[in-house]
Design a binder for these strands. Structure first.
Lengths: 236, 236
DNA sequence: CGTCACATTGATGTTTATCAATCTTTGTGG
DNA sequence: CCACAAAGATTGATAAACATCAATGTGACG
């Protein structure tokens, strides 16, 4: 095999499997899986939907990470949301954000209008979608708490916890890959890249994490979660 | 009449009317209106649902303002969401926030489980609920942008704009009532009450607003919106 | 008319942004 | 494989924004 460039854990998620795992019945998952769909590959850091362009498209992440971002007046950016493999982006009526891949990603595109026709047939789907929306709402709330009422260290620590819990399929291990640049972490946590760098140094100095290239090693998750004030409940 | 204590504009919103105004068909709005419901009055600043207590209850705000709040370890609070008259709170499966009224409020309580039975009959209702959820998601995004990438002045100005646009039925007038204490504005915008006070003084010194008791006067909405970087689109 | 919550102000310290330079890693074409 | 370019990471010096602490002013209300 010539796959020495393939990332560990970057296996693509199957749409049908993900829907069932998330609690949808086999019947409805199958109905969705049969809908017309196309698969696209998105390069890292390239915006593929500009702010303002609406759209009828639902994006399902097979691999990689997508982000919603907002660009203000003075060059300052804010990343609003992340989507890990198995998660989806539902289009807004008035999207004031753009979409961009954090890392090279593989995405399935469905038509929202087509998907909505299934609601007539399967009321279960409506509850499924609303439950998903609530989960993302809970994540949004945590981010707001982060930016609104925590110091820089806790914010970065929280993002690391969330990343480990959302990207892995199982309980986070002592080693995981940090997919973000420091600038992106700054855009997520509402800081500057310079300060993020100093926070990392501080986290490492305190022994909360170790860094090996893009990998983060965590000996004591309990302690890191305490510093981050992180509780995983909201990700359920 | 002995109503000299009644606030101007505090007239209660009718559930049926609000649903129809928001785009629901007469038929579905009527079906919801017929569901068993009870009306409660909630005093200002008293939490009426603690964090962690789940619940099957949907709250529709007839008058006043509700808030979702989160209390951290170190006394620091964050207000996560607001609900103005005509808007609703949908219960989360794992609510990590509490509910509290900003001002004395009148609320209609419905059972989520009962409401969900209507989804079988009216798929239209599912889309209606998801549209509402997306509107609140857009508001959440704006709050995150506020706390993550704007200075104190812009944050407060943005909250004032949003309040004027969400609380009035029509386009904001030159005078509106600020329902918040400075501590609450601090809890919303991720600052301290002391700094909020200074921001108000600064906004007034720059001629962007005038204060008369709880009332705010705005001569030039365009200018205030510019300072706040506020666009009303996301509230549609 | 006293109490209580809220608002206001000043003095001071901490955190974080900003500016600027250098080092390191990664990717690319020859 | 190496040279080079480009992006990212790191560090230091300085300034701005904001938190904290503490005191006083003010309006509402029983």
């Amino acid at each position: 095999m010539s796959g020495h460039h393939r990332q560990v854990g970057a296996a693509s998620i199957d749409l049908f499997d993900a829907l069932v795992t998330s609690g949808l019945s086999l019947k409805v998952a199958h109905a969705i899986d049969k809908l017309p769909q196309r698969s696209i590959n998105i390069d890292s850091r390239r915006p593929f939907r500009e702010p303002g362009s609406g759209g009828d498209e639902v994006y399902f992440v097979r691999s990689g990470i997508l982000s919603k971002y907002w660009s203000g007046y003075g060059g300052r950016r804010q990343i609003l949301d992340l989507r890990f493999p198995g998660e989806s982006v539902w289009p807004d009526d008035f999207p004031d954000y753009g979409l961009q891949a954090i890392v090279k990603s593989e995405v399935i595109v469905l038509q929202k209008s087509v998907l909505e026709t299934l609601l007539d047939e399967f009321p279960e789907l409506a509850i499924f979608c609303m439950t998903a929306a609530q989960r993302f709402e809970a994540i949004n709330h945590q981010w707001l708490v982060n930016c609104g009422s925590k110091g820089g260290t806790a914010r970065v620590a929280h993002l690391l916890c969330e990343t480990a819990f959302r990207s892995g399929n199982a309980y986070p291990t002592s080693r995981f890959s940090n997919p973000f640049t420091q600038q992106q972490i700054a855009d997520i946590t509402g800081q500057t890249n310079v300060n993020v760098n100093r926070v990392f140094r501080e986290l490492e100095r305190e022994g909360l994490i170790q860094r090996q290239g893009k990998d983060i090693l965590v000996d004591d998750w309990t302690e890191l979660k305490r510093v981050a004030n992180f509780r995983a409940d909201y990700l359920d």
